[in-house]
Design a protein around this nucleic acid. Structure first.
Lengths: 203, 203, 203, 203
DNA sequence: GATGAATGAGCGTTCATTCAT
DNA sequence: CATGAATGAACGCTCATTCAT
């Protein structure tokens, strides 16, 4: 009964939703990117978020969980960038260029995020738990993409997709991360890398 | 009779050879590889070496220096592998295959070492010099190699060597590390990666 | 009824008064006096205060800062004793007797404090600012006092005030500290020392 | 039989006596003066002496013993200075001036030694053993001197010698140590201090 | 006598986490 | 829901001392 009315009524700040989680997430991202996992204390995150130290533990059971959430957010965001730009019926070159464009664009509007998410996670395994790393995951994604390309004749069929998927990912990761570090021009990197991958993969 | 001969023959350790450094180095490598930098305490290294933990500091001023020495040793060892297998007048394919062969061979006889050396190093800088990381260094090496290949017409001249050098390194690093992790067959990886790089770079 | 009154009446501690600093200070004083700076560990102080040893570092950045705070507190307390007993228009003898009385009274109600504060402080500098030591500071105070006494003819004008200021302080410090150590009668010490200083300084 | 002959014969380096103790002593004094007790490691002393670390323990059972030997040497040396300059039948002023002269002369030719020997020793009591401190000892010496002066009418008889002995010592110690620290002119200090003490003690 | 590699108890300090308010 | 004072295991490192050579 009151439910639909309440919904319409709710223009005022939506029932003071736990905005603190958002603050924590933004603060955590900022600090993990700037300082890395080990140099960031939960206390720092809470303070950066303008909250008490205890509040951190209202949202995450421990520091590790917070970092994994950060990694997962980054992964989802990048996936969105990729999906948003994906179009059907592209040539190999268009597809590669599009993907690189999406990745580098994300990298530029979220500087350091991918690097932080990928670099640190090898370090965290509490006792070997270590959620499947991004690198591995994205390597598998590229393997799958490659298989699709091969399937409809847009890519060379002589490869083991698993291996080459990792190679593609590695090439992208390293150029992106080193490019960002040394301030290299983005267009330049994308152009060279596209050419590199297209030549390697073309049928 | 034996006296003058003894001097030549001299087998006695000429005052307790400092074998402890060797023990520390081996123990440090083992633990850095198994657990990573942050999860390895100087005390663990000393204990693994069968020595008191004060002994660690006889050889290294701090933990960081020990790790950097480990990284440097790995770098030198891999360089030796590469140099030992380098031959003049190779085709692009031969050159790539040889390099990959050397790297994967090293990786296999020193499992985890390259990964540990490259993964953790980005994490350590703290406030120091942070000796140019292996990744960057080896990327630059590949850039130089590529320039030479281009110079005598064995590789495509349309690339920015710096960018593609990083791409090559990234592809190798990622396939090697993921290949080792998932126990993939070495021959397979080398074959695929060679083909990948040769096609990408061939004139 | 009680609601508005309660606000005025408010006895509940308005959020856990940080009484721990007080506990730490008292414990630190006790241990610095009993054992000296080097034989007192932050952990000992915290335990003596009935607190965890992390709590120590909530209040002081390091052990040195805690000791300097202890010294400063002692200085302020003694100054209060002196100021509280200072009266205008005294003769040299009255003035000296008053000062000695204040100092020895403080010494007796805070046994060992001045000694600990003065003895250890010379040892701590390490590489830092080493706030002007008490001895030097109080020597300078006596020099100034002497100059004032000379100015209005109550003390002999033939002295270099800086030198004699130090001499006065030295005589007081040594008799006080040795007197406390050997349990000598306070009246006796004050009487002898007053006579000693008055004769030395009288015009 | 051979004994007297040997003594005459012995112009060559006297049978290579354990010169290492002398080296250790000189090195220890240098470092205790420069750095203080706590900042001086036995290892530093041995190295400063140009000897192996173990050699230190051939001469002293531990660091504390070495420091106490240093203190004792200083005491003996200063006593020699005082005795050498002592003459019978002096007036109070002559006697005071002579003593101060001797002390300041020693202080100047062995800079920092008295200060180091007196400052640190309160710090060392392993478990309350603490060999009778120099300050206390010298205070008692001055008390005895004062009693003698009183006995033959050269000093005021209204004092408790123990108390005033400490006062005299304190005045000397503080002026000497602060004078050295601030580079004050020696003549000046001695002159002022002599006047101060003579006026205080004269009958 | 002389050595210096080796030792390990112990130091000052940090930080992820808890819990009374 | 939010807080931040409190905690103590654990860290990197030092240094007085021992002992095989």
């Amino acid at each position: 009964m009151s439910s639909p009315i309440k919904a319409l009524d709710d223009v005022r700040p939506p029932r003071r939703k736990p905005e603190s989680l958002g603050k924590i997430k933004r603060a955590a991202r900022k600090l993990f990117v700037e300082r890395g996992y080990h140099a960031t204390r939960p206390q720092d995150i809470a303070r950066e978020a303008g909250l008490g130290h205890g509040t951190f533990y209202l949202h995450y059971p421990d520091k590790r969980a917070c970092f994994l959430a950060f990694v997962d957010d980054a992964r989802e965001e990048l996936d969105e960038y990729l999906i948003a730009r994906r179009k059907p019926g592209q040539t190999l070159e268009q597809m590669i260029a599009m993907a690189l464009y999406a990745i580098f664009e994300y990298s530029e509007s979220h500087p350091g995020v991918l690097n932080a998410a990928m670099t640190d996670e090898a370090i965290i395994d509490a006792e070997g738990v270590a959620a499947k790393p991004l690198l591995q995951r994205w390597g598998a994604d590229w393997a799958k993409t490659l298989q699709e390309l091969v399937a409809d004749g847009r890519a060379d069929s002589g490869y083991d997709a698993e291996v080459v998927g990792q190679a593609i990912l590695g090439a992208i990761h390293q150029t992106a991360s080193e490019g960002a570090r040394s301030g290299r021009n983005r267009e330049d990197v994308v152009k060279n890398l596209t050419r590199f991958l297209v030549r390697a993969l073309a049928p």
